[in-house]
């Protein structure tokens, strides 16, 4: 894929060129939206909205990291989506039981090709991470999603959310500290899922 050429064509209004860029980046944008919003339907809406506004604003792209530029459109779309949600509150992400405790839902038990035990552990881990991410404030969550989950460097993350690099550094450190505390609680409850992780991280 000749990305600069596709970008130039898309800037000239070529929808087919733009759609090739969409195909290349849709998984990434969807994942960012999913981890920020926590729900697939909302994430899909935000992703679609992001690509639409990206197409309309293509002429404002002035070079640099196209990925970071696109990620900015999706984070903005997520913020808009959350604002809409706040205006129109719906059921909480996690259904609660009578004691106001979260009930495990099959949504987290995503189907994968791994063995059942491993699947369960992965699902538990994903559940734990998503739960802890949701507890973070939006700006902390966004920085963690872009840097730790998507693997962007500080400069790209800064560009994607429109803040200085120093802010990214500081927000990320705070977010990691909160996540660490939150995840530790899960690690005690679900040692197997977290043991797998520890082996990997060595």
């Amino acid at each position: 894929m000749d990305e600069p050429l596709l970008i130039r064509r898309a800037q000239a209004g070529d929808l087919e060129a733009f759609n090739q860029l969409v195909l290349a980046y849709q998984d990434m944008l969807f994942n960012v939206a999913l981890r920020i919003l926590g729900e697939e339907d909302l994430a899909a809406d935000a992703t679609q909205e992001a690509f639409l506004s990206a197409f309309r604003a293509m002429s404002s792209f002035r070079g640099g990291s196209f990925r970071a530029w696109l990620l900015r459109t999706v984070t903005n779309a997520c913020y808009d989506e959350l604002r809409r949600q706040r205006r129109r509150p719906t059921t909480p992400l996690e259904p609660l039981n009578d004691d106001d405790e979260e009930v495990e839902t099959p949504r987290w038990l995503a189907d994968t090709s791994a063995a059942p035990e491993e699947q369960l552990e992965r699902a538990e881990l994903e559940h734990a991470i998503m739960h802890c991410l949701e507890k973070l404030s939006l700006e902390f969550r966004t920085v963690v999603v872009l840097t730790d989950i998507q693997g962007l460097d500080y400069a790209e993350t800064a560009r994607a959310i429109g803040v200085p690099v120093g802010t990214v550094k500081s927000r990320l450190a705070r977010a990691r500290l909160r996540l660490q505390r939150c995840l530790q609680a899960f690690a005690e409850l679900l040692p197997s899922a977290f043991r797998l992780q520890e082996e990997d991280s060595v």
Binding site: V22, D27, F30, R35, T47, L52, A110, R122, V144, S201
Partner: peptide
């Protein structure tokens, strides 16, 4: 370890194409 946990979060595929 915390960062490694986060990196293990599985990437999902887009549920459908978002072409316009």
């Amino acid at each position: 370890r915390t960062r490694a946990f986060l990196r293990r979060l599985p990437a999902r595929r887009a549920p459908h194409h978002f072409t316009l």
